[in-house]
Design a protein around this nucleic acid. Structure first.
Length: 523
RNA sequence: GGCCCCUUAGUCUAGUGGUCAGGACGCAUGGUUCUCAGCCAUGAAUCAGGGGUUCGACUCCCCUAGGGGCUACCA
């Protein structure tokens, strides 16, 4: 699986810290790494950055993995699958950080610092007041190794700091930003190892990326400013500096950094809402990347095909839920009938709509031509001309087919077609008021019920004919019959083709609901 | 405070030293129809502002403004 034969293998990584759920920003970063790996035949590594012991949790860790699996972003090396460069959890890599830290100390590139948090705090306040750059003043820089060792032996709290060269600058190449450089004078002696013995982010990330042979560091823009520090560490340790790719941030609706208060930013939320993972992947890909000026709907495969780091945008993007829904709807449209039915079936089942409150045996000659103009229903459903079982998948096939593009979010399926399965479907009171509570309605519904009851053949054609004929007889518009019927049968003013609804609801249920509504309307 | 990054319609974006500045979501209007969705057609809406460079700038340079990030013993 892993190829460590040469130094040219492309190796990328997603390195979340388990301090919260997987949000859209993190997911987008993971996705770009994954896409790049899959496109180039490289290796995608998952590494958990849990050096912040206080905030890291097991739940977050599991949640992140769950989110990635839901999105279909599989990793080649990681905490659960292993690999040649493990462990893949920072908390288990302590010895590695200390090995490299020791080298830096020996070479005089890092030094112990015994300044108390209190002193550092005062220093910061003072610098702020004097409007000076806020940076460590290097008090412990001059301590000899012996002096430092003594203090350590005496049990003094200490951290390890990087000895920033006073002259020179750090340079690096970023595929999105171009060449970057920062003068060393802008940087200070930042901390490498915290007093609890754990490495800081900047140190750990370099040691890990270097030792894991990461070739391209693809991450959020918020890390750009830290990159010069990291470059210093790479150089000091004699490691090869990887290529960097800093992705523009994804912003919340108020254009600030994404956080909990922005609501629906968790990948979990989208999976709970039953968005399609492929749609999510598609939309996420578009946040900071585009292929050209025409295509924006991509299958997973097409994305891998087209993806290029060179086309990554520099601009921060806002997550737009409307567009996300649109992309989701487009992906849903493209599913095969069998796939749609499968998805809808699971939703209805999970929400308790299947099995339903009642049984419907569709009558002959109900056939699959029931729905003129829709694509033929394939898969394990009913074949043309075959008898359709009332409660089986066959009826659901027809229902889903009749529903057509009305279903955009799977989560809404019960709302759209629940009345096919339950008697206590939602009723729109306003619709009842407008369409049912009128004196002429009861007679119309009763007469329609009579007509339908007397039909020899209960298929769409006959039903429509019946309704229209009755309307003619009563000298009213067909709509005068259709609208109250829709409310009577579905509880609302919105539904698929009413004749198809009638057929799929079945003669018995249709008549029952029409009569019941007529009864209500009489009052 | 210091440093860094970003700036094309409400949003995501394409774009070249000379284009009617293109597409998509959303929005509006009309058509199809039993409602809604869909589909089709049409429309409103953009180069943040100011200076340069240039025969000519959305495009190159500078400044300003706005937004974001880093400046932590967070990542």
């Amino acid at each position: 699986m892993t190829d460590n034969s040469g130094g040219n293998t492309i190796r990328v990584r997603f390195a979340p810290s388990p301090t919260g759920h997987l949000h859209v920003g993190g997911a987008r970063t993971a996705l770009y790494n994954w896409l790049y790996a899959r496109k180039t035949g490289g290796v995608f590594v998952l590494r958990i950055e849990d050096t912040d012991a206080r905030r890291s949790t097991r739940e977050s860790y599991e949640g992140i993995l769950r989110g990635m699996r839901w999105l279909g972003l599989d990793w080649d090396e990681g905490p659960d699958v292993g690999g040649d460069y493990g462990p893949y959890v920072q908390s288990a890599r302590g010895v590695l950080y200390h090995t490299d830290a020791s080298r830096l100390i020996e070479e005089g590139k890092a030094y112990h610092c015994f300044c108390t948090p209190g002193r550092l705090e005062e220093l910061k306040i003072e610098q702020k007041e004097k409007k000076l750059p806020i940076k460590y003043d290097g008090l412990c820089r001059g301590l000899s190794v012996e002096e430092a060792d003594e203090k350590i032996k005496a049990g003094e709290q200490h951290v390890l700091r990087f000895r920033m060269p006073e002259e020179g600058e750090a340079r690096f190449r970023d595929i999105v930003r171009g060449d970057c450089k920062v003068a060393n004078s802008e940087l200070d002696d930042f901390v490498l190892i915290k007093s609890d013995g754990l490495p800081t982010y900047n140190f750990a990330v370099v040691v890990d990326d270097a030792r894991m042979k990461i070739s391209h560091v693809i991450r959020g823009d918020d890390h750009l400013s830290n990159t010069p520090r990291q470059v210093h560490i790479y150089l000091a340790l004699g490691y090869r500096v990887p290529k960097f790719v800093h992705l523009p941030m994804i912003l919340g609706g108020d254009r600030t950094r994404l956080s909990k208060r922005h609501g629906a930013v968790s990948i979990d939320w989208y999976s709970d809402q039953r968005y399609l993972p492929d749609a999510m992947v598609n939309y996420l890909a578009l946040l900071g990347w585009s292929f050209d000026d025409r295509q924006e709907l991509f299958s997973r495969k097409a994305l891998i095909d087209r993806f290029s780091l060179k086309k990554v945008s520099k601009n921060p993007a806002m997550f737009d839920n409307d567009k996300m829904e649109y992309i989701n709807a487009e992906h849903f449209k493209k599913l095969s009938p069998a796939q749609k039915v499968m998805h809808v079936y699971h939703v209805l089942k999970d929400e308790g709509y299947i099995p339903g409150d009642f049984h419907v045996d569709l009558e002959k000659p109900v056939d699959l031509k029931l729905v003129p103009g829709t694509e033929p229903l394939a898969g394990n459903g009913a074949e043309d001309g075959e008898r359709v079982e009332g409660d089986g998948l066959g009826r659901l096939y027809l229902i889903v087919s009749v529903l057509g593009n009305r279903l955009k979010l799977l989560k809404d399926a019960p709302g759209h077609i629940g009345y096919f399965y339950k008697d206590d479907y939602d009723v729109d009171d306003n619709a009842v008021e407008i369409h049912l509570m009128r004196k002429e309605v009861p007679e119309r519904l009763d007469r329609l019920a009579d007509s339908l009851e007397g039909l020899n053949y209960f298929d769409r054609e006959r039903v429509e004919e019946t309704v229209r004929t009755l309307a003619d007889e009563m000298k009213i518009e067909a709509g005068e019959l259709i609208h109250p019927s829709r409310v009577a049968l579905t509880g609302g003013t919105v539904s698929p083709d009413i004749f198809q609804v009638i057929v799929l609801l079945g003669r018995e249920k249709t008549v029952e609901r029409l009569r019941k509504a007529a009864g209500i309307a009489k009052r």
